[in-house]
Amino acid sequence: MNASLLCLALSASYAGMLALCLGTERHWKQLAAAAPPSLRAWCRPLGVLLLLLALLLSLQIWPASMALVGWLGMLSLCGLVLLLLLPYAPRLALGLPLLGVLLAPVFMSG
């Protein structure tokens, strides 16, 4: 149970960082040039919501103060993963949250 929650929390953290990243002009042009530009304005609020979701999931894994520490750690590391994927594998960078969400039930049954 914990492992799948962790997987979901990581996916949410990563997705949130991805959304915040897409909200910037530079990376929107890099990753989502084909999409309608009006969508970009939604990216930052969506990113914040996803990060809050990640925090809520963290609170299911750890007690309160520990969850905050874990959450910040996840944000940092997910941000780093995103940063490394952007120049080398932009498609994977976009698709990773989906992969995470799909993996989560695997851990639950394990």
Partner: peptide
């Protein structure tokens, strides 16, 4: 604190 998930976060950081 926080079990192995937390320990891994610290290790990676």
């Amino acid at each position: 604190f926080g079990g192995y998930p937390m320990r891994w976060l610290y290790f990676l950081c």
